[in-house]
Design a protein around this nucleic acid. Structure first.
Lengths: 369, 369
DNA sequence: CCGCTAGCTGGTAACGCTATCAATATATCG
DNA sequence: CGATATATTGATAGCGTTACCAGCTAGCGG
């Protein structure tokens, strides 16, 4: 009676042409479980013991397994299509984000539909509708769209599962994947304070993104905690773009009492600040320390390389995709899925753009506490 | 002897969900033939009697049968998985490239597998093998990998169809999608000459990419044609990175007789040149014109915006995907597909970073022709 | 009229995955 | 502590199609 269950071993003539691709069976064998269990893990179902899941995941990674979408759709699972709307974040950010999303997409074999949209209300709503029309079962929103009320509203009407990435705060309209911007900004500020800086300029991010606000709050909180009375002229508005950073840095560096350090709310603006400083004959970091936020590729493509907060963008995109896939699944079964808030860890990366202040120069003695 | 062949009638509990679609089996039943014969007819094979063929065709029409692509690809090993290897091009470039590739991928429902690789020989070869192991049936190579001998060699061994994007020249190892770098560089140079520039600095691209060389040749050719004897100190080596552009521009702008314009072989280096110029107190474009190449997002994210050559990156990625899909198809049937060279049109985009030279200043009178 | 080669046609077995349900392990409870 | 719930895993059976090969039907030379 065991005759039907022996396809796995030796006597396999394997008449048909051998295609190299690793199959679910290879993974199962390697992980020491049944193909069914692998399927469950890959599809993010929950009734799998953590240890088993880990073993499977390891095997998946080791064999770089990617499910065959044809087989999957044949077997009855519809191919999940998920939409990804972007407007114009920094190119560096988007690239890393896409890489993560795509990688995970090929692992779980979901189809990603990209949709670019204009930054207008109509453009944003239009993009959502278009995605919907193409059969998206869920939507991922990288910044800055993750905070657009137009997009969020439109999405809420449709009831589609949504995951926002890198918002500053968790709101229940959508699940989100983010770091603790507040804490990260505090940590960076404390680092600068530890280096001896007392007069620190801050270039704010775009005002309608909560992440900007959290970063600003973190900065101010660290300052307050250190007992430093903050000079409001040192807070300059920026909009996350390189260009806006140029203007902001210009403002900061024409101040009568200018700062010994500048903390920009993202790397693009920090890079701009470095450029302005150079243009004014200031050496970074000798005359001015500059730090950024995000650790996108621009951080290491300029000189000196930027001390910054590393956000694991690629990983965040992967997580976002996972969340959305799960959400779609529950959405399909139960109908109701509650939003989750997924915090990932950031880290402070020390590079060459920050150093202790070089006080003697044209600088008046800072009024330290 | 007919006992094994009765799954078609009555006693079918049909446990699984019933999807309405008519299958090859329905057609076979209706035409009174076996599914296999229907398959043959549908696929236009020849060994079918005309009468049989007609009957099948009639049944197909009557039931408006259309083959299930998933099943077809599963059975026929028509694995439409294509690999995309990247190392580290500029972030802006990769983003646009991915956008195009993905868009086309979802349109033709092929699966894209991304693979990042280190810029070492081992890394590159490893990436190819990994892709192969995951069942890639073809590979797309964006720059700079499109010229890596390691990758190309490894690919040649496997015999996988390959499409290189944005190489400078067409080589028969792979199909390619590109612009005419030589002509584009010529056109840009002529534009600068037309503005009145006579002393033009050139920041070269990475020496092991043919596109760099073509651009350089186009530049020199335009100069020669205009009867300008070129000063070799105005040609500086760059490597396509922002950082290398910084060094190159520094070199150019500390020359005793420095140029009134700088033509960088890509936008990143041009952006760096702008930054260096600013740092030296030079106004762009009043004191120095700077032009780039590619029209990636950095071109419009700095100030002044860059006059540059627009490469339709997104469209090129789409075309590349199309070519590879076609190549895979022929590869599977005949075994031999010859490489094609697909040229797309570029365009010169005039923005704010170039203007007629402002001779009087600290500049010695240029030794025009 | 027989043995044979060709030409058609059909049977069988995958392709790689998941739905379903049975089996087993673990947890909960009276 | 046994028994009943619950969580986890596995076995089986297709999903719709094509590859491969065996069988059958004619057509043909001898």
């Amino acid at each position: 009676m065991a005759r039907t269950t022996e396809p796995l071993d030796s006597k396999k003539p394997s008449s048909r042409k051998q295609r190299g691709a690793t199959t679910i069976l290879d993974v199962a064998r390697r992980a020491g479980v049944s193909p069914m269990t692998v399927s469950r893990v890959v599809n993010g179902e929950k009734n799998v013991r953590p240890a088993t899941r880990a073993a499977v995941l390891a095997a998946v990674k080791a064999l770089s397994y990617s499910p065959n979408p044809a087989a999957r759709s044949l077997a009855g699972a519809e191919a999940a299509r998920i939409g990804l709307i972007y407007s114009n974040p920094s190119a560096a950010y988007l690239t890393e984000f896409l890489v993560g999303a795509l990688d995970e997409a090929s692992r779980t074999s979901v189809q990603i539909m990209l949709e670019k949209c204009e930054a207008t209300s109509a453009g944003e709503r239009g993009a959502v509708r278009k995605l919907l029309a193409s059969g998206a079962a869920g939507v991922i929103l990288p910044p800055p769209l993750c905070e657009s009320h137009d997009v969020l509203d439109e999405l809420k009407i449709t009831g589609l599962p949504t995951v926002a990435v890198a918002t500053g705060r968790f709101g229940k309209e959508a699940s989100c994947v983010r770091i603790n911007d507040y804490a990260a900004a505090r940590e960076m500020t404390n680092y600068l304070l530890g280096l001896g800086h007392r007069r620190i300029g801050f270039i704010k991010g775009h005002p309608n993104q909560t992440a900007s606000i959290e970063r600003e709050k973190g900065f101010l909180s660290a300052l307050a905690e250190a007992g430093i009375k903050h000079d409001p002229v040192l807070m300059v508005q920026g909009y996350f773009s390189y260009r806006s950073g140029l203007d902001a840095a210009e403002t900061l560096l024409t101040l009568k009492q200018f700062p010994t350090a500048i903390f920009a709310a993202n790397d693009d603006m920090a890079a701009a600040a470095v450029s302005v400083a150079h243009r004014k004959g200031l050496d970074v970091p000798r005359d001015l320390s500059v730090v950024g936020f995000d650790d996108t590729s621009i951080a290491t493509n300029i000189w000196p390389e930027l001390t910054t907060i590393r956000q694991p963008i690629t990983a965040m995109a992967e997580i976002a995709l996972d969340l959305i896939v799960q959400a779609i699944r529950t959405h399909k079964r139960n109908g109701e899925a509650k939003s989750v808030d997924h915090l990932v860890t950031y880290s402070l990366i020390k590079r060459g753009s920050a150093a202790p202040p070089n006080l003697p120069k044209t600088q008046p003695k800072p009024a330290a506490e």
